[in-house]
Simulated scan of single mutants.
Amino acid sequence: MMKFNDVVDVIKSLSTDEKREISLLLKQYLREESRDQIYENFQSTKQEEKQGELIFSKQINRLKELLE
Rank of each mutant, 00 (worst) to 15 (best):
M1R: 08
M1W: 12
M1G: 08
K3L: 04
K3R: 04
F4Q: 14
N5D: 05
N5T: 06
N5Q: 05
V7L: 15
V8D: 13
D9S: 04
D9E: 09
V10G: 03
V10F: 11
V10I: 09
I11R: 10
I11M: 10
K12A: 03
S13D: 12
S13A: 09
S13K: 09
S15V: 02
S15Y: 01
T16N: 11
T16G: 08
D17L: 09
K19T: 01
K19S: 01
R20P: 01
E21G: 11
E21A: 15
I22R: 09
L24C: 10
L25P: 06
L26E: 14
K27F: 15
K27A: 15
K27N: 14
Q28R: 05
Q28L: 07
Q28K: 05
Y29V: 10
Y29R: 11
Y29F: 11
Y29I: 11
E32H: 02
E33C: 07
E33Q: 09
E33R: 05
E33T: 04
S34Y: 10
R35P: 00
D36I: 07
D36W: 05
D36V: 08
D36M: 10
Y39N: 07
N41K: 12
Q43Y: 02
Q43M: 02
Q43P: 02
S44W: 03
T45R: 01
T45N: 03
K46C: 09
Q47I: 06
Q47Y: 04
E48N: 06
E48F: 06
E49Q: 03
E49A: 07
Q51M: 11
G52C: 12
G52I: 04
E53K: 05
L54F: 00
I55W: 00
I55A: 07
F56A: 07
K58D: 15
I60T: 08
N61H: 14
N61M: 15
N61K: 14
N61Q: 15
R62P: 00
R62D: 03
K64G: 04
K64A: 10
E65K: 12
L66K: 00
L66C: 00
E68F: 03
E68I: 00
E68L: 02
E68R: 03
